[in-house]
Nucleic acid binder design. Structure first.
Lengths: 188, 188
DNA sequence: CTTGTTATTTGCACATGGTGCAATATTTGC
DNA sequence: GCAAATATTGCACCATGTGCAAATAACAAG
C-alpha cells in the first residue's frame, strides 16, 4: 500500500503523473495491474499523501471555548498543523504534480472542502458571533486564510508555516468578533 | 458548439454525467464521436457554462481607485455579477452534477483559482493596504466571501445574490483597511 | 501434515475516454 | 467553377477502470 505510493511518487517525480501509467506503477511495485485498482479507485489516488484529521479532543475544546474566537481557533489549527507532514520539498513537488492534473487537483480541493465543512460545523456548534448563518462565511474565510498561509509557505520557503497562519487568523479577529456589525450598528 | 452543450446538459440532467457517454452526446448533437473531441478536450468540458470575464474597463477603474477598498471592490464585483447567468435552477443543477464528478469539480475550482489570481494582480496594482505581500491573502479572502455568498444564494434561493455579496464584502472592510495592524500597533 | 475456509491476487473480457493521422467533405475567396 | 483553407470523419491505437470468476496465498483446526 505505502510501498505502491512510494513507487508511484518516485516514478512521477521526473516525468509527471500523466507520463506514468498504472501498469508501470504496478510492475514497479511488484503487483499485477489489476491489483493496483483494488487499492486505488483511480490512478491519481496513488499520488496523494495521507491527510490529517482534526483531533476529536481539539474539536470539542474549540466548540466549548468561551474566549476570543481567533485564539481558540489558533490552538485548534496548531494541533492540526503539528500533525501535518512538514516535508516542504515533497509537498511543493506534489503541488507541481497537481498543477496540470485536474483529477489530482480535484482531490486537493476536495480536502479543502471537507476542512471547510468541518469548520462550518464547529462554528455552528460554538454559536455566538460565528454561529448560525454566519458559520459558512466564517469557515470559508478561515479556510482561505489557512490556504493562503500554506501556499505562501510553500512558495517562499524558509520560516515555519505556523507564524503566517497565526498572522492571517489574527487578521480575521475583528470579523470573528463581529466588528463590522458594531460598525454598521453604530453608523445607524 | 452551444448546441452540443445543450444536448449534453439535457442528457445529463436526469442521469448524471457519469451515465452519459461522449458517443451519446455526439449522436444526439448530430456529429461524429471524433468531432466531439475536436470541440472539447474531455467529456466534462461539454457541461460547463460559459464563464464571465472581468471587464477591462472595470479592472482599470478598480486599480486606480482611491476610495475605500470595499466600495470600489463592490462596484467591480457588481459589474461581473450582472454579466453572470442568473438562471438559478440551471446553476444549482450544474452544481449537483459536479457534486459526484471530480473532473467537473476541478473545472469549477479552476475558475475560482483564475478569479483569485486576477484579484491578486488587481490588489497588487492598487497597492496600499491591499497590495504587496498582503495581496494574495486579500484575494483569497475576497474569493471566499464571493463564493460563500454564491453558494448560500443557490442553497436558499429567493433574494438576489448581490445583497449577500455586498454584506460579505462589507464585512471584510476592516481587513482591507488594515484594522488589525492598527490594533496590533496600538497594543504595543 | 492435511484439510477446509477465507481473503487476496490475478487474468480476461469489455466499455469508455482520449489522441494522432490521414482521408474526405465543406466552406471560402476569387 | 476552381483552388486553397478549414472542418469533419474514420480508423487504429493506448490508457483508465470495472465485473466476474478462477487461482493462489494465508490460516485455523483437526
Amino acid at each position: 500500500m505505502e510501498a505502491i505510493q512510494r513507487c508511484a511518487l518516485s516514478l512521477a517525480r521526473d516525468r509527471g503523473i500523466a507520463q506514468v501509467t498504472t501498469e508501470e506503477v504496478a510492475t514497479a511495485a511488484g503487483i499485477s495491474p489489476r491489483t493496483f485498482f483494488n487499492y486505488f479507485p483511480f490512478k491519481e489516488a496513488a499520488f496523494v499523501p495521507p491527510q490529517v484529521e482534526l483531533p476529536e479532543e481539539a474539536r470539542i475544546r474549540f466548540c466549548k471555548g468561551k474566549g476570543r474566537v481567533a485564539e481558540d481557533l489558533l490552538t485548534l489549527l496548531y494541533s492540526v498543523a503539528s500533525a501535518m507532514p512538514q516535508d516542504r520539498d515533497m509537498l511543493s513537488g506534489l503541488r507541481d504534480l497537481a498543477e496540470g492534473n485536474p483529477r489530482l487537483m480535484a482531490l486537493h480541493f476536495d480536502f479543502l472542502r471537507s476542512v471547510e465543512a468541518q469548520l462550518t460545523e464547529l462554528f455552528r456548534q460554538r454559536g455566538g458571533n460565528v454561529g448560525g448563518e454566519r458559520a459558512p462565511l466564517m469557515a470559508a474565510l478561515t479556510t482561505a486564510a489557512v490556504r493562503s498561509a500554506y501556499e505562501s509557505w510553500m512558495d517562499v520557503g524558509g520560516t515555519s508555516p505556523f507564524t503566517l497562519i497565526g498572522a492571517n487568523i489574527v487578521e480575521l479577529a475583528p470579523i470573528y468578533d463581529g466588528a463590522a456589525q458594531d460598525v454598521r450598528a453604530a453608523a445607524e
